[in-house]
Design a protein around this nucleic acid. Structure first.
Length: 306
DNA sequence: GCTTAACCTGGACGC
DNA sequence: GCGTCCAGGTTAAGC
């Protein structure tokens, strides 16, 4: 039985026997950019306007998860929802292994318990605007600066918090952001795009992004792609990481390299045109089914080498 | 339908 | 120290 670090607040315990999770792999796999590991291997982050603290002993995805929320304490539902602990990971991985044991086996063994997060759509939407021609480390910095500059500080954090935590900025705050300031905070040429997209979302009915959860993958992807600045890859990131579209496969350089190394050879050497993008996505779905997006994240994380 | 260039910036790398 | 390349992409123009 593992014991969490002794600290000034009370931990809550979540059993993970039936919903395994590898916390470190999940938070470092490049799907969310707002988590920071502090002293004693404690993870600090935010979910909307809630500060969240997480800890899990490494070694097994079935080690219990310890957690607390701030300023409202004991908000269990937000933890379960964000970490998608309602999804039956064991069933899905058994199906992958039955279908393609040689291809994914090693990735699964190394990162057993890696989960796709169910992030707040708005945060996911804007964070991935920063992804083009960028590195994960720089995306993390850019998003942190965006939240610090335009978000509200979360009150009531324990004294052990390594840094202040900020809620993700509202649409109004982003729409009124200063182009020059954003450019200087590592957003570069992406700055005007962020401001324009915030204005565009403000013009739509409130909750428009969240409403895409109830639409089909094709419909959600098409609607997102219709926005200026959202291409197929970013649309797939938003679909997979925040809209419950588990078969969405964001095809980037890493995901493509894996596919062409292991099971898709006819697209090698070609430019990433819409036709090739679709071929790679289809190759993942034909092997890994309705949770292909979860499978690709195992490949992506290993390829990322974090 | 495909190719190409432009768009910011900082870290890695070779010299 | 300096130049070059590259990094989770998108868009528009030209072919």
């Amino acid at each position: 039985m593992s014991h969490p670090p002794e600290i000034s607040f009370r931990w809550n315990l979540l059993e993970t026997t039936h919903s395994p999770i590898n916390l470190a792999s999940t938070l470092r796999s490049g799907q969310s950019f707002r988590w920071r590991k502090g002293e004693l291997d404690i993870w600090w982050g935010t979910i909307e306007s809630t500060g969240v603290v997480l800890w899990q002993e490494s070694g097994s995805a079935k080690n219990p998860l310890y957690w607390q929320t701030f300023p409202e304490q004991d908000n269990k539902s937000i933890i379960i929802d964000y970490l998608a602990l309602d999804i039956d990971l064991d069933r899905m991985t058994n199906e992958w292994l039955a279908a393609a044991p040689d291809v994914l086996g090693e990735c699964l063994r190394i990162n057993h318990g890696l989960r796709i997060l169910r992030q707040p759509p708005q945060e996911c939407f804007f964070a991935f605007q920063c992804a083009s021609c960028n590195t994960v480390v720089k995306i993390e910095r850019s998003v942190a600066q965006l939240a610090q500059r335009y978000g509200c500080e979360i009150p009531g954090l324990p004294k052990e918090s390594p840094v202040p935590l900020y809620a993700f900025p509202t649409l109004e705050a982003l729409a009124n952001a200063d182009d020059a300031v954003l450019r200087s905070q590592l957003w570069g040429y992406r700055a005007p795009r962020v401001i324009a997209l915030a204005k565009e979302l403000l013009d739509r009915p409130e909750g428009w992004l969240e409403s895409l959860r109830s639409k089909s993958y094709d419909e959600a992807h098409t609607l997102l792609s219709s926005l200026h600045g959202i291409g197929p890859k970013i649309a797939d990131c938003i679909c997979l990481f925040s809209l419950d579209k588990h078969a969405a496969v964001p095809v980037d350089t890493h995901v493509r390299q894996v596919a062409e190394r292991l099971f898709l050879f006819e697209t090698t050497g070609k430019s990433l045109t819409p036709t090739v993008y679709q071929a790679i996505r289809s190759a993942y779905i034909s092997r890994f089914g309705e949770y292909a997006g979860w499978a690709q994240q195992y490949f992506f994380f290993v390829e990322l080498g974090r």
